[in-house]
Design a protein around this nucleic acid. Sequence first.
DNA 1: CGAAGGCTTGATAGACCTCAAACACAGTGG
DNA 2: CCACTGTGTTTGAGGTCTATCAAGCCTTCG
Lengths: 250, 250
Amino acid sequence: MSNRLFMGTDHERLIRKLESIVQLNDTERRALGSLPLRNKNYSEDTDIVHQGDAPGECCLVLEGFVCRYKVLGRGQRQIVSFHIAGDIPDLQSLHINPMDHSLGALSACRLAFIPHAALATLMRDHPRLAAAFWRNTLIDASIFREWLCGVGRRNAVERIAHLICEMFVKYEAVGLTRNGSFQLLITQAEYGDALGLSTVHVNRSLQTLRKQGLIASKGSRTEILNWEELKKAGDFDPMYLHMQPLDLAA
Amino acid sequence: MSNRLFMGTDHERLIRKLESIVQLNDTERRALGSLPLRNKNYSEDTDIVHQGDAPGECCLVLEGFVCRYKVLGRGQRQIVSFHIAGDIPDLQSLHINPMDHSLGALSACRLAFIPHAALATLMRDHPRLAAAFWRNTLIDASIFREWLCGVGRRNAVERIAHLICEMFVKYEAVGLTRNGSFQLLITQAEYGDALGLSTVHVNRSLQTLRKQGLIASKGSRTEILNWEELKKAGDFDPMYLHMQPLDLAA
DNA sequence: CGAAGGCTTGATAGACCTCAAACACAGTGG
DNA sequence: CCACTGTGTTTGAGGTCTATCAAGCCTTCG
């Protein structure tokens, strides 16, 4: 397939993502490769989609670090998910509008927007791709459930350890780790907003993880020192990430 | 359509549910009405599907009260959702297996099981029904996000008030309320497991809601006395429930 | 260099948990 | 009919975890 030569690497990011969800054949890969992508850059701490909007496109993260969050009545922020390259954080906007949450860039990032209409035709013509996208949103939901367990039942140290484990596995899946470690760039305030903790308490809990020799951090950069123990400390079992691609009958 | 005469009320429950998600035409109603349903009863406090199982059917709640929950490493339970008549709590099993959580009956209940294969053909032949089912799981996810905000950022009284509001709206949607009130049958231990609180603290928080005249309860039965104030107390905005059926182009 | 953002530390307060016991109520069996 | 049991609710006391407030420090960046 010399087709590959004509595909921008942006499409490849999408294809690799879908391939991590279901096994694809060449027709499907080609169909994905011809989706219209509108690229756009965002700088740190800007909103991509706002709570209440009814967007007509979904966005694919190409580079950078993105989160979904809600702002509650008293102004408190709750981050409900983090997203990295390959993720499609607002796929749900295909079927539920308006947005019940916002999408924000936590770092400078590069995104590709795909019109809903293009996705709709794609999925009409390729039911297995439709299943893949659906499955993607279901895995999302599974992660929400796990986070719910975290804030509901785990203490601060466990929550942080668990989150670091989850992010490590996600980074590893897209090849963003090096010899068992990775660079996680999350401020302590962001940890807090994601885990339901105050910044101060995040700081102290990170210190205990550091004292235990499980992680190292300088600035807002976190590295893993002892993966096995960190998993134990966070009660982490990657099952809920459902990372084995589904082998649908072709 | 004298067809309706031949449909059991069980199918009607399913049809009404789908109609609350998208607008249906007669063909779609008929297709839903001919789905094979295998009925089964469960007694209180029994598991319907277990964490780790890979079920080949989805279940529709016909009567009773059902929850999804996870058991964490240290044996703590976290309830992640409640379900009532009309809900299809494990629709996600269509595309993610094995189950990352369990499904349990909190009261005696009557369920109808639908084979995955039957749902797959139905959705292949009726893309708008496929969209409706997908949308259903997306609303599920939206509720998870809202619960995440609750345990992450709201205090005990707010969480309880919010949950009661949510359940009231869901009961109302299926006609299980009477003159602005309803019968919510949740034990304090269940409140705690859903909201990340201890039973004792649930008890005390319920008492403050009662003292404020917002709810009344005898035994494990809760009633709403002041809806407007209860919404305020729980910082409740039903937007995240996405209850307006989608008007898909037919 | 100063400013800003993020990290760190200390002290204090409050929310929530745990343990333990009493109470209320419904169902069961003699 | 009544004791008995089990489940769920209520109350009290004490302790832990986490939040809040306030200040100082460090790094980055213009």
